[in-house]
Amino acid sequence: MPEITRAEVAHLADLARIDLSDTELDHLAPQLVVILEAIASINDVAADDVPPTSHPLPLTNVFRADVVRPSLTAQEALSGAPVEPEQQRFSVPRILGEEA
C-alpha cells in the first residue's frame, strides 16, 4: 500500500508554494494516506491485459496547421495582470535563480 510520510507532504507543499503549519501537516498527512489508499484500489481491477493509460480518449495525432491566428493585444494580455505593468511587460517579484 502506498505510504506518504509527513516529510513528503511538507516537501510537496513546499514545491507547490503552499505554506503549511505543523498543525496542518499533522492533520493533512494522514488524510493523504487515506486518499492514496482509496485510489490504489484501482490496482485490484487492473489486469495484465489492461495497459496503463493517461488519456481516456482513443485519439492520437490531433494537429493544427502551422497558420498564424490573431493574438490578443498587449492591453488585453496585460489587463489581468495583478500588478501594474511596466514597459508593456508583466511585473513579477524579484526572481532568484537562473538568469534569463
Partner: peptide
Amino acid sequence: SLHVGGATGRIHGADHSLVD
C-alpha cells in the same frame, strides 16, 4: 525576463522583473 533595479540588469540585486 528583464531584471529591473539591479546595477547590471542581471538577476542578482534586481528588485523586480518584467516579463515578455
